[in-house]
């Protein structure tokens, strides 16, 4: 599978540096969480990886090829992007919404059997099959988030980049969607998530990237990187780290450093 890398990626927005020489190698088959305080550059980094923003210097590369110069359609097939805003501008039904994920594959042509099968798989994977005929405006917040996730899954990309896919979900749906993202990584694709919740990251991610003011503070395996010292250096808070009876780590902020 393909590797997604950045090389001294630097980005300014409105005269402000938001990313400063970010060099990373992301491995496929893993869930990677981008962590950091507000304004650290997590979403900007994700947008650069998806070629939705052009860096001022440096580059993001897929298999050694700059993502910004990949043909739009090839890039769209290989990199799926789930934005934070759950915009759906027209009251389409869930199946039509999910089928949008096949656009890079079918272009102007009609959907073929492979497209339809991929849509059904994505509906199945997000437990949306029963709601497939329902108009989007009649969905609850959690159902809508799952439908939008199904849209990205339908494209069956090599890389799935998602900006806070768990933020607006209740705990049950966080577990469901988290398990689904984990399954995508297990199947071999790379999954990169912007996450705000340290506990979710600790439980879900194989590796984490800690960002602060556009710079990488630490990157690597979750257990090795998410230490109280690194969290203090990134967020400026003191935390206590514990382990549940089932062996899962939890992180509780206890005060500012």
């Amino acid at each position: 599978m393909s590797a997604l890398e950045t090389d001294r990626l630097t980005l300014s927005l409105g005269g402000r540096r938001v990313l400063e020489e970010v060099t990373l190698t992301l491995a496929p088959g893993r869930v990677t969480a981008l962590l950091g305080p507000n304004g650290a550059g997590k979403s900007s980094l994700l947008a650069c990886l998806a070629a939705l923003r052009r860096p001022d210097a440096g580059a993001a590369a897929l298999d050694g090829k700059d993502v910004a110069t990949l043909p739009a359609r090839e890039r769209a097939r290989r990199i799926g992007f789930l934005p934070q805003q759950a915009d759906v501008h027209w009251d389409v039904d869930v199946r039509a919404l999910v089928a949008l994920g096949r656009l890079p594959w079918r272009g102007r042509g009609a959907a073929d059997a492979a497209d339809r099968a991929a849509v059904e798989r994505a509906l199945e994977a997000t437990a949306m099959t029963a709601l497939a005929e329902r108009p989007v405006e009649q969905l609850s917040g959690g159902e809508r988030a799952r439908a939008l996730l199904a849209r990205v899954l339908a494209g069956e990309p090599e890389w799935l980049l998602a900006d806070e896919p768990l933020a607006s979900l209740d705990p049950a749906h966080q577990l469901d969607v988290g398990a689904r993202l984990r399954a995508v990584a297990t199947a071999g694709a790379g999954v990169v998530l912007v996450v705000h919740d340290l506990n979710l990251a600790a439980r879900l991610a194989d590796s984490v990237v800690l960002l602060r003011t556009g710079r990488v503070v630490a990157a690597g395996d979750t257990a090795a990187v998410l230490t109280p010292e690194a969290i203090a250096a990134t967020y400026g808070v003191a935390v206590e780290v514990g382990v549940t009876a089932r062996g899962e780590r939890y992180i509780v902020p206890v005060g500012r450093v």
């Binding site: 939705l52 097939r77 799926g80 079918r106 272009g107």
Partner: peptide, 23 residues
Amino acid sequence: ARTAPALDALTLGETAARSLGVE
């Protein structure tokens, strides 16, 4: 008529449409 797929993609907003290959 040739813009039909791109218009469909814009249902998800401009960012998502671009990620789907709309220029």
